[in-house]
Design a protein around this nucleic acid. Sequence first.
DNA 1: CGAATTATTGCAACACTATTGCATATAGCT
DNA 2: AGCTATATGCAATAGTGTTGCAATAATTCG
Lengths: 144, 144
Amino acid sequence: MMKHPNLIDQAEALVKTHGGRATRTRTMVLAFLLSQHKAMTHYQIEHTLGEQIKMDRVTLYRTLEWLTEKGLAHKFLSNQDRAWRFLVNDRPAHSHQHPHFACTQCDKVVCLDKIKSTYDIPLPEGYQMQGLEMTVKGLCVSCA
Amino acid sequence: MMKHPNLIDQAEALVKTHGGRATRTRTMVLAFLLSQHKAMTHYQIEHTLGEQIKMDRVTLYRTLEWLTEKGLAHKFLSNQDRAWRFLVNDRPAHSHQHPHFACTQCDKVVCLDKIKSTYDIPLPEGYQMQGLEMTVKGLCVSCA
DNA sequence: CGAATTATTGCAACACTATTGCATATAGCT
DNA sequence: AGCTATATGCAATAGTGTTGCAATAATTCG
């Protein structure tokens, strides 16, 4: 979990092409997020990645904020706790309007592909829809 | 906004039929939620209702927790801030599985009716769906 | 009604997550 | 190698919610 040097190179390149300095924390956090296929909280990142490299709490907060600003990751709140969860934006121009899947057993959160079908959402008279947030709850393949 | 004595009577009755003591804070908070047609945060309740009756912060937290436990209200997190929002359960046996609408202009949140149609949600192999959380973003009738 | 019982409250302290200010360090440039 | 803007580290602070416990008050019972 972080032993792929290619991920680190990839992360460093991504940081630079987004106008940032490829510092160790920034590069390693992005590489770590790239290596994960689930949403991670600040706490989780601090305690797993933090075993390998020393990081300041605040720097990690700012790093995650930076990644989000630059569109390299996105964040959201689950209804479980009140901690932001961060997911790397794999696909180019990752849509901010896509559903998430949250495992009720292991709390893993992953992105789902955009849904094609249209929805029959009955809005009150005069309301206008701009977007949709959606989280599917259930069991992931490991917990099913 | 809180001048309907019938709402207070209704709230008091609801509290009692749910096995609780009809204390002033509990009755007034429930009556207040009943008078609102939108989700309210602890902060909002404390500062609006708090102008009329004195309330302890913690008591309000516990009151909201109690209302939620008893099924008189439900709570959720929006992706805006990290504060729980509370909505009274108007309809009997109000489903916990229903969409919300959040106005991007005035931050008002209301419940939407359950959606009838089925969804074409492509889950990864082996994943099992248990439920669905959904928030429609847009403009409410006052802001459109 | 008045005392007994037990649910609620109020206060103080604490916990968790996140943010701000500012001096110091460092990446990238020339 | 030196410059300079960017990024970091530390300390302090903020926002939201929780816990422990003694004091209070809503019901119940005699």
